[in-house]
């Protein structure tokens, strides 16, 4: 309690009785109604604490008379957002992929919706912008497609996936392992040189020539005569600078001897129909769509 209330000689006012290192505070009274506003705020807080969740208890907290929760509020927000999206999603569901692409409104909506769905579901493997990742996660922005880059193909792969066991309609391709005695080390080296020569990067013409024979016997069916790839069976193109598992000779040798093969899960059943359509359109517009 302040005790030393004095009268200040200069102003004629009294002090509040508080003193800090010789500095005394003059009593400049606030108006009473200012105090009443503080009381009104306290009363407001009390009412607020009754209406909304407030006090902790032994078995959970006091829920307030309104039963308001953040969880419910966000659920309502989401429901409202979904209701606002519904007209667009219904139109996308009803339209064919090509119709979505031709209609500027739907295209804009699908590109925006697809981008969000892509970030949520696809970017972990294919990169945030569809640039792919080293080690077998294909880039979706370039023009090199293993299975084809049409809207329908992209859509179908999103639906069913690749080399998975969940979906009987998943696309399957199998690169046999040529190591472990199927082909000799020298033969594997030769065929790797031949593959390099398809994109003009071979340094050993003799080895590439020997490899051409091995290639013709073992690889042509899936990768094509000139390494142009065979999309029907999912045989990747070899005569361009784009490599799924790396384009150095060592990486090519490793892929021939003991191949790695990526898996993509089916999304049908996990994502709704409209989302998968939007994803197909979005991926198609990334730059490589055919």
């Amino acid at each position: 309690m302040p005790t030393k209330i004095e009268k200040d000689a200069i102003t004629g006012k009294t002090t509040t009785g508080h003193e800090w290192d010789g500095i005394k505070e003059l009593n400049t009274p606030l108006p009473k109604w200012w105090l009443y506003i503080l009381y009104a705020c306290i009363a407001w807080a009390a009412v607020w604490a009754i209406i909304y969740p407030s006090f902790p208890g032994l078995s959970g907290h006091f829920r307030g008379t309104s039963n308001w929760t953040q969880r419910q509020a966000i659920a309502e927000d989401m429901a409202r957002a979904r209701a606002e999206q519904a007209p667009f999603l219904d139109r996308i569901r009803a339209a064919s992929l090509d119709e979505v692409r031709q209609n500027p409104d739907l295209l804009t909506y699908a590109m925006a919706g697809g981008r969000v769905a892509f970030a949520d579901n696809c970017s972990a493997c294919h990169g945030s912008g569809g640039q792919g990742a080293r080690g077998g996660f294909p880039a979706l922005v370039d023009d090199d497609w293993i299975w084809g880059g049409s809207l329908e193909t992209i859509h179908s792969i999103i639906l069913h996936g690749i080399r998975n066991t969940q979906d009987p309609d998943a696309r399957i391709s199998q690169m046999p392992a040529y190591g472990g005695g199927v082909l000799s080390r020298a033969q594997i080296n030769d065929v790797a040189e031949h593959v390099l020569s398809q994109s003009g990067r071979s340094t050993d013409v003799a080895a590439a020539g020997r490899g051409a024979v091995v290639y013709a016997e073992n690889c042509v069916a899936c990768h094509g005569e000139k390494g142009e790839g065979v999309r029907d069976v999912g045989g990747p193109r070899l005569n361009d600078p784009i490599w799924l598992y790396g384009g150095t000779k060592a990486e090519i040798v490793a892929q021939i001897a003991n191949p790695r093969m990526g898996v993509m899960p089916p999304w049908a059943g996990r994502l709704d129909e409209a989302t998968m359509k939007m994803l197909a359109v979005y991926v198609h517009t990334l730059g490589g769509g055919e």
Binding site: S128, D142, R237, D240, P241, G287
Partner: peptide, 16 residues
């Protein structure tokens, strides 16, 4: 920003 550039199969380069 991702990807910063795209190498295409014919050796051309694309930016989006």
């Amino acid at each position: 920003r991702a990807p910063v550039y795209i190498a295409l199969s014919d050796g051309s380069v694309r930016n989006n």
